Amino acid sequence: MKIFHGLIKISLVIALFAVLPAVASAAPGIPHQFYGTVTFSGDSAPDGLVVKVSVDGETVGTSSTTDGKYGYSPDLLFAINETSDWSGETAVFTVGGVTASQTASLERGGYAELALTLSGSVGSLTVADGGSISNQVVVVTSSSPTQVSVGSDLAITISSDQNTSATITTVEELSSSFFSGATGILSGNNLLKGFEINITGDNLTISVTITYDDSGIDESTIKPYRHDGTSWVAIDPFTIDTSANTLTFSVSSAQTPYVLFGGSASVVVQATVVAPSGGGGIVADTIAATTTIRGDIDQNFKVDIFDFNIIMVNWGGSPTNAYADLDGNGKVDIFDFNLLMVSWAQ
């Protein structure tokens, strides 16, 4: 019996020693530490952006930015291997969701200063009137929205309740050739401004302000629209400032064209009415009547050779002057000419 118990003890000891190497091999390895500066297109990163180091898509360490730096006490950045020591694996770095240009080779107990540089803008991104923005990344912080502007025509404010980034695929003014077929100008309306605005990201609020020209336009009819792939859909709510000639609306993500449409203003015509007086004399009085003369493209209160010239200059499928498209079918053609002739000399 003693011999039997002894064999059991020996067997347990052997089994224990067999397991120990497996347990030891599963212990975390000595981490690789990183620290350094963070810049976006030469500008220091704002505070609070998350810095991640990843291997094969898996996050192995995090820190955050302070004073344009990362990995400094007390928020150190360690790349930790949970199962063994590092042995030359490639580390990829992201800041605020944007991938840095630099990578690093991970080593057991490594300690390295690494300056992270990233493409993108912090705070603002501006181009001149008529310009466009494409394939740009902007950093958005919870404490400071990012401003994107196209001259004086378009202002976009991108904000979030957390530190993140936004990808601007396209921001540009729509050309006249865009407005045909299903995307034609709404009947009875004039095109004031239109933009392609494609901005994506997580937890973003996007406020869009478009500046318009109110010449010949009834401002009470101006509304923003987006195209859903089939038709123009009115956006509500919105805010219009008729003094500054701006209209503002908000969206959670911007992936479709946006435009402002508005109807033509009425023309005030002064007329003198002559009628007999009660005593047999004649009394003359001047009254104001409101009317809209269809075909008065240049708004000079009559349809004449100048309006005809505008029709001819804009003849075809993509009118430069949307007012020349009298029937609102997205092109200037024989139907617009007929409408002009109906009102000729009025």
Rank of each mutant, 00 (worst) to 15 (best):
E196F: 15
L174T: 00
G278M: 09
A91I: 09
T117G: 07
S252G: 03
F308S: 01
S253I: 14
S215K: 09
L204D: 01
S159L: 10
A24Y: 15
I10K: 07
S175G: 07
N81A: 01
G123P: 07
K52Q: 15
S207K: 15
I185F: 12
S143Q: 11
T248Q: 12
R108Q: 12
T141G: 02
S73H: 05
P145G: 00
D129V: 12
H227C: 06
L192Y: 02
G281L: 11
T221R: 07
E82A: 11
T65A: 04
F93W: 09
Q102F: 12
T320Q: 13
Q147F: 08
Q33N: 09
V13Q: 02
V140Y: 15
T66E: 10
I222E: 02
D327R: 11
L340C: 02
D236A: 07
K2Q: 12
M1P: 06
D228V: 07
V332N: 00
L49W: 13
K69Q: 12
S149E: 15
I158M: 13
E219L: 11
V269D: 01
T239P: 00
A324F: 14
G279V: 11
T103F: 11
A112M: 11
I305M: 14
N309E: 08
N135A: 13
S220P: 00
A100C: 08
I30H: 08
L260P: 03
S177W: 05
D56R: 13
S105V: 02
V98S: 01
L76W: 15
T272H: 02
